[in-house]
């Protein structure tokens, strides 16, 4: 293992080892874009050769429905000896059924992070030993963190059929009526869009709350 001298060294030696990697704009930590096929090799090299032994985070970004590539998976690794972070990002090639190779072989921590990303973003992690939903319940039909999913939610059934029958309750869209939520469908806010994005009038002060 070679000692890391500076943040620039990490990206420089990474690009020397993996020529396909490109620098990713970042305001803080060294960051690289790598092709999806090389991600695991890059992460393994970072872990074994550069001392990034601690997996901080595995997550993904949805760049809106009409953008391609739509999903970018992001890994953050930390070195407990060198006290340094690195960010690795890879674009998903398929916008419809995004898929990413699993990092569970490298870090046990990646297990739950990948389950969460699958749950909320709908990204499939190839080779994950137990890819189930972790935060939403099994059988929930949507992936809430996708940009086409409204904050208020979409009407579905409660996870428990018996209770749903007894109480006649459903998962309903939350009332946004004039809430403090601003427009963000395209990221930039202008004054005409800055009205509440989720203008849902299903119930408010005038129309009563559904039973």
């Amino acid at each position: 293992m070679t000692a890391i001298a500076s943040d620039a060294d990490v990206t420089a030696s990474l690009q020397a080892k993996f020529p396909a990697a490109t620098l990713r704009p970042s305001v803080d930590h060294p960051a690289v874009n790598v092709p999806m096929g090389e991600v695991i090799a890059v992460l393994q090299w970072l872990r074994d050769e550069q001392g990034f032994d601690y997996c901080v985070d595995v997550t993904a970004i949805d760049w809106a429905e009409d953008v391609s590539p739509r999903f970018t998976a992001v890994w953050h690794a930390y070195s407990t000896t060198g006290h340094r972070y690195v960010r690795v990002a890879a674009d998903c090639t398929d916008d419809e059924n995004p898929s990413v190779p699993t990092a569970t072989g490298l870090w046990a921590a990646a297990d739950w992070h990948e389950r969460e990303t699958f749950d909320l973003m709908g990204i499939h992690f190839e080779g994950h030993p137990d890819l189930r939903r972790i935060l939403m319940w099994d059988g929930y039909p949507h992936h809430p963190l996708r940009k086409d999913f409204p904050l208020a939610g979409i009407e579905t059934e409660l996870p428990d059929i018996e209770v749903a029958e007894e109480t006649q309750a459903k998962v309903i869209a939350a009332p946004m009526a004039g809430g403090p939520f601003v427009a963000s469908s395209k990221g930039e806010v202008n004054m005409t869009d800055a009205e509440p994005r989720a203008k849902d009038e299903s119930w408010n002060e005038q129309t009563p709350k559904p039973e």
Binding site: L135, M136, H142, P144, F149, P150, L151, A152, G153, I154, T167, A169, V171, I172, A173, A174, P175, M176, G179, F181, K209, E211
Partner: peptide, 11 residues
């Protein structure tokens, strides 16, 4: 006010 939260336990 979000997709995951029951809007009042009285439901």
């Amino acid at each position: 006010r979000s997709y995951a939260t029951l809007q009042g336990v009285d439901r």
